[in-house]
Amino acid sequence: MIQFAVRRIILSIPILLIVATLIFFLMRTMPGGPAVAVLGDYATKEAIEALEKQMGLDRPLGVQYADFLGSLVRGDLGKSIINGRPIAPEVGRVLPYTLQLAFSSLLLGIILGIPMGVFTALRRNAFFDYFGRTLSLAGVSIPTFFMGILLMLLFSIQLDLFPVMGAGDSSDLRDTLYHLFLPTLTLGLMMTAYITRTTRSAMLNVLQEEYVRTARAKGLPERIVIYGHALRNAFIPIISFIGVYAIILIGNSILVEIVFSRPGLGKMMIGAIKQRDYITLQSVMVVYASLVVFINLLIDLSYGLIDPRVKYE
């Protein structure tokens, strides 16, 4: 298992390399180049050249590319164009906020989504099933930023229960959770909707399997048939889909961070876009890509925990 993990990490290096390369060259295709992006359309030619020289953009593209990759390997994400501060420590500061949000939402989605999926599957075509399906369709369809605003109106403005913005004092757990609640609810409800749908269809498939009939023929109580034999098999497709949903979740966390003015990678990225800080933007995108690769690694490792047919060799 550990060997497999190490190998998977090594295998993800080429993936990250390709992603970093794509990001690097995409940045270079910005109209007029990064210097124009920073200085604006009316900058003089001299000013642009001076800035390009300062940023090292006058060097050949190959050199710049090698320099970019070299820094990445050393864990150096470069310096911000705007304030000249190194980016890596800033990423280190905001990353925990994004991870907190992502993991708590995913957890909420799993805790609510899996039981709801099982119940709707068991009450197929009954009232609860239609109710659950309508609700999860709504959850999948409502954009997160809109959902965030709705929840904010209800819980913060009408009921005055939770704060509208910020992440609170990170050294105070209660304050952190207090500020985390609404953003987590926003993303978590979306995850719940996705996971409910997936669980429902996975369960409906598994319940048709012969081994479920065998379990019943053995005289096992329905509780063991459903939650032992059926659900355990349903977990295989559910986990694959959770891997996909986690990526959707990360994309949406950017919107939620903006809506709730939470510090985080998303807020940092949007800030970089606004300020045309392409170095920061490029670095944050690489971090996001690494996050996605890491989640996929976790998903692949978790298969082996439930399916004996998966071999890590």
Binding site: E209, E210, Y211, R213, T214, R216, A217, G219, H229, D307
Partner: peptide, 20 residues
């Protein structure tokens, strides 16, 4: 009574046994 007094043997053991 199922599996205790009356038991059943199914056709395809590959799909009738739980793979996990």
């Amino acid at each position: 009574i199922r599996g205790n007094r009356i038991a059943m043997i199914f056709q395809e053991p590959m799909i009738s046994l739980n793979p996990l």
